[in-house]
Design a protein around this nucleic acid. Structure first.
Lengths: 345, 345
DNA sequence: TTGTACGCGTTATCAT
DNA sequence: ATGATAACGCGTACAA
């Protein structure tokens, strides 16, 4: 049956003919409360399914025990995996998590930020949209003392902030190095959207691996795309347009994009002779189902990135780290080499 | 610079030498407020980045404008796509969404439910965990007048509840029918976890399509698995163990499972002659990268399921539908036929 | 050991 | 047109 009168402390107090404060203290196991009274109160609370009203508590305690998370997209496994790390650690520390998607749109990101600000989250973790260059909507938080940790997407234009990032430099370096070690000299690089926070570090990893191993760099071997399939194909076409400079290997900034690239290359027979060895960022479980899989994946350890972000955030909330003592945490990638049975080149 | 005193109505009122209620009314565009006063207040509010405290408003208004969503897993694209539908519609109607994962564990589901109850969400949308048979943690909501809509996972043991479900019966029927129309007589059925809310309807769709088209049913052609790869392979082995009764087609309850099945079948040469045509639930974008793809996919329209769930929920919140007038909404599946170029069998 | 009184930030009712 | 006051549900300092 639906009971209309809400079960509040006052409601219980009336039932028990006690004061509200006694009920409150009994439920919170205050030592000064008589054991018998406490028991009676707790039984009554259970019987009536008393549930403390979080809004009232937030108002009183001036904190919500809620962590806000803004990220571009839940369809990207990187982010859903990172949430796993965030949730684990948050729950362990008595925090709940509100997730909000920006769909990589600045306007949605601003809305999400304002919503979370009104909700007075105790801290914010954010992977900025690809269009975010102005940070006023996010700076609001720090202005009123709510710590913000930027993760995954590097807010290059925002110097004074806490960051937790994948070490994509190192990941891309290792991938390129592996290809070099396997004898490749013409290694193409397929980068992401030309925003500095996407491709800069990866590209540097690529370049440095080439340099350190004395493999000549050619700008003809570099192309950029976004998450759109058509653009990927155009980019790939450009990479393979010079017969005398045809790549024998490829590093791509994200696996779904790489799959489009591979599919296209196969349609043009490049793979029929295993001509191109590929590596991308991601390590999708899906790879095991492919007939021409990448030879390796750059695992970005999203769970660990999430965990580092929330761990830092909670230290900031607890003032174990001063909010203006800006931290930068890098989480290493791990190169996962898949079955190299083909032994191609 | 970090400003320590929180910007509240009182703070603004003091600055402006006005009363709190005037400030409140000015910010909410009360018609009785003088235009000039209103302007002064709003400017001051903007200058100090006043942000209303949602906890205080919730407490006052006895509602949170938050919808809670409990679902098993964000790694499953069905659910992340359904969230898209939920978010869209929720935002349009002035609601925010809190998502909580149960990881298909009852204990986590109970924790999530309690958290959302404390947060006094205005409504709950839930896809129950595969272990949920007792509903007390969810019934709590209706007991205090908060409507609950069950979606995707059918709570068979809970008769009096609002449901929004995929019409998997129809989806599975159509898939089976397509295979029959393509000449198959030995169509295997690979079902999901043997919980009634997973496979019952699908299996009935399969059976009914066979019956309606006078294709004989054989229990040797039915096997069950869960989301574990080993179990899937065992199940598939059992289906193909009788040489005289070997399936030429397969309907599977979920695509990732189907991919494992296909991979195994290919390893045993069953696909070398295109012996088995497959269909699964899901319609993953990934299919386009497979060399031996399913011939069709049963698209469950998760966005539409999500939209129907929240649309119903908001009607319940607004009391346009009585909370005890239990609704059941079925969302049809759509059979997506992929390139049938192979023309096998 | 228990009760009284106040305040958290906001809105709404009733005076002025 | 504006202000004073009460109320939402809870926790706590202080009084009894």
């Amino acid at each position: 049956m639906t009971n209309n009168t809400p079960v509040t402390l006052k409601f219980l107090a009336d039932k028990l003919k006690m004061s509200v404060s006694t009920v409150s203290k009994a439920l919170n196991n205050y030592p000064t409360i008589n054991a018998y009274t406490r028991q009676r109160v707790q039984e009554m609370a259970r019987d009536f399914h008393f549930t403390p009203n979080k809004s009232a508590i937030n108002l009183k305690e001036k904190r919500s025990r809620i962590i806000g998370v803004i990220l571009p997209n839940l369809l990207d496994h990187f982010f859903t995996r990172s949430i796993y790390g965030i949730e684990q650690f948050a729950t362990q520390n008595g925090y709940n998590v509100i997730i909000s998607q920006s769909h990589d749109e600045l306007e949605k990101e601003i809305q999400s930020a304002n919503m979370l600000l009104r909700s007075r989250v105790d801290g914010l973790i954010v992977a900025i949209s690809k269009h975010t260059q102005d940070f006023t909507h996010l700076n609001q938080f720090e202005n009123i003392g709510i710590p913000v940790v930027y993760y995954t997407r590097n807010p290059s234009f925002n110097l004074n902030c806490h960051k937790v990032l994948c070490n994509t430099f190192q990941g891309c370096y290792q991938a390129t190095k592996l290809l070099i070690d396997r004898g490749h000299q013409k290694i193409a690089y397929l980068g992401g959207p030309k925003m500095i926070n996407f491709t800069h570090d990866r590209f540097n990893g690529y370049i440095n691996a080439l340099k350190d191993n004395e493999v000549p760099f050619s700008s003809e071997l570099v192309a950029y795309t976004d998450f759109d399939k058509e653009n990927t194909i155009t980019a790939i076409k450009n990479l393979f347009v010079y017969p005398e400079n045809k790549p024998t290997a490829l590093v791509a900034f994200k696996e779904p994009i790489l799959f489009d690239a591979i599919k296209y290359l196969r349609s043009t027979k490049h793979f029929k002779t295993n001509e191109v060895e590929c590596i991308g960022f991601g390590n999708t479980s899906f790879i095991s189902y492919l007939d021409s899989p990448p030879i390796a994946s750059i695992e970005e350890n999203p769970e660990s990135v999430g965990e580092n972000a929330i761990s830092l955030l909670i230290q900031l909330i607890n003032k174990e780290i001063d909010i203006h003592n800006y931290q930068k945490v890098m989480v290493d990638c791990k190169l996962i080499v898949h079955g190299l049975n083909a032994g191609s080149v």
